[in-house]
């Protein structure tokens, strides 16, 4: 039995669910919206066993052969938020999440992806160290609380972007003269600056040994938010050079990710830069444009 955990309308989860149904394999969706009606029992010794119960389902976790994890933070679900931080509903949601994440660490089932493996993206500079060891270039980076160091770095590279250090999502943006006046505020918290790397963006989805590459053509600093800059985005399927594809595959495997979204940029002088490896990629954005059957590949990975 294959277990899906998340919100039914989440794009990647729904796409994988549909693909699994077409494969006619046993699949069960643990709807995160049912968190306040979800009970869990776990028993751990040299193995892990347990049961998850909702109003409609009883899932024997020992029978789960594969699991696809796409949950959001349950405390942000409307009914939990309404109950409020510190309420019994809020604590229950936390305990459900923690129990299921803990089970996902230990179950012998195929897990896409194990929580520990996904954590490498919690620190982008940490992950950059892993990326560099696989032969990709990474942008020269400064993390600083020192405004004078930021100004020096800016002067060195001419064009510089800033982005979050953690996985808390932020928009990548170029540093502009307007930022100069408030650069002193970086003393309060380490801030990450990177040399701007010109070139074309590529998103590479790794699914097991399969590689799905897309070229993204956009003039925006961060193509995910190109609409805000009034910049069009074109996404098209492409082939990567073999050595680059192999490095993406090896990088994802080394981090422990059987499904990953690798963000690359190819420069005019022929260098491949890698910005990050997304451990829970929202692949449907790319699949809709490229027509690549990524959900089918994930379904086959789970079903094998």
């Amino acid at each position: 039995m294959i277990l899906l955990w998340g919100l039914p309308l989440d794009g990647p989860l729904a796409a994988v669910h549909e693909a699994l149904k077409r494969l006619e394999v046993p699949v069960v969706l643990l709807d995160q919206r049912e968190v306040l009606r979800t009970d869990i029992e776990l028993v751990v010794s040299s193995k892990i066993e347990g049961v998850v119960r909702t109003c409609d389902l009883t899932i024997d976790l020992s029978r789960v052969t594969a699991v696809y994890l796409r949950p959001y933070d349950s405390t942000r679900l409307p009914n939990v938020r309404t109950a409020g931080s510190g309420s019994s509903a809020w604590y229950h949601a936390l305990r459900v999440d923690d129990a299921l994440w803990g089970w996902a660490e230990l179950t012998p089932a195929v897990v896409v992806n194990r929580p520990t493996a996904m954590a490498s993206n919690n620190s982008k500079p940490y992950q950059s160290g892993q990326i560099r060891s696989f032969g990709f270039r990474i942008p020269d980076t400064l993390i600083t609380t020192d405004p004078s160091a930021a100004r020096e770095f800016w002067a060195t590279y001419g064009t510089v972007v800033y982005k979050s250090i953690s996985s808390v999502r932020s928009i990548v943006a170029r540093l502009t003269p307007e930022h100069m006046a408030r650069l002193d505020t970086i003393a309060g918290c380490p801030t990450q600056f990177q040399q701007y790397v010109p070139g074309n963006d590529y998103r590479v989805h790794i699914v097991g040994n399969a590689v799905f590459a897309c070229e993204i053509v956009s003039a925006a600093d961060d193509y995910r938010y190109a609409g805000r800059q009034g910049a069009p985005v074109e996404i098209r399927s492409c082939e990567l050079p073999n050595d680059c594809a192999e490095r993406c595959r090896a990088l994802a495997a080394a981090i422990g990710l059987s499904v990953a979204g690798v963000d690359l940029r190819y420069t005019p002088d022929g260098a491949w830069y890698c910005f990050e490896v997304n451990p829970s990629p929202g692949f449907t954005y790319y699949q809709e444009a490229s027509k690549q059957p990524i959900n089918e590949a994930i379904a086959r990975l789970l079903a094998q």
């Binding site: 009970d39 869990i40 776990l42 751990v44 010794s45 229950h92 803990g102």
Partner: peptide
Amino acid sequence: PNWRPEQWVYAAAQVGIPVHPLHRRVSLG
């Protein structure tokens, strides 16, 4: 590692340390 008690029990069992099964029950209320 930021292991939960379950992970420590499991790891202890894997390296041959006798363990008592650890039970966790999550139910609203």
